[in-house]
Amino acid sequence: MLAKRIIPCLDIKGDRVVKGVSFKSLADAGDPVGCAVEYQRQGADELVFLDITATLDTRETMVNLVTDIAGEISIPFTVGGGIGSVDHIHRLLDAGADKVSINTAAVYTPELIGEASKIFGAQCVVVAIDAASGDGAWKVYTHSGGRPADIEVVRWAKEVEERGAGEILLTSIDSDGHKAGYDKELTASVAEAVSLPVIASGGAGGPEDIYAVLTGGKADAALAASIFHYGAFSVGEVKEFLAERGVTINSFQKRT
């Protein structure tokens, strides 16, 4: 049976992890490769790296970093942040990323979704949707949540599926950073509307929030940052919590 996935997300600025990861076991908490290795050790199913500066100047840095990460870890990882062309996607995949996450560019140039999907395969095209509520409807936001796009979220999710996306990374801007739980209704409404895997993001405060979004929220995977970064919970602890409640997870225990 397919396991639900737990995906730690790391914000990258230049070639450093920001938002203070604090692993006691790591001498250099800002080192992306070290953090990636630690999360794999904890039992993460995948990782997401978001380039939060994402300027032309830092693009090369990210490509080199992707190669360093791919050389060290043996679980899949996604790279996002400022990706807007087939050429850029090609460079990141070629460097060793398994998937790319497109957000603002998908809204402004939606044909990019189809082009990338056709060339590289749907499985490596993640469309990130940042959603905020207002006027009784969930709307899509671009530019890291800074700009409303006047598109209804479920309608956009269906469109990205038709255009060839392989996965949706759905972030609730309303819940993000509050550690009060994911937005289960939003997540379920998208997960029911499309037949693509949906990764829920924004609001994880503890294992019970992750449990809730993977069950009632119908998400296929849960992305979280701060609960893991500050060592409140390890990925392994979250998975143990889920397994005790009957959620199928990969504990990485079975091997030899």
């Binding site: 397919l2 396991a3 639900k4 199913d45 749907a122 499985q123 996965e167 037949s195 895997p197 995977a221």
Partner: peptide, 11 residues
């Protein structure tokens, strides 16, 4: 029909 496509993740 009836399953999400792609089949993505650990099985």
């Amino acid at each position: 029909k009836g399953v999400k496509i792609p089949h993505m993740g650990w099985n």
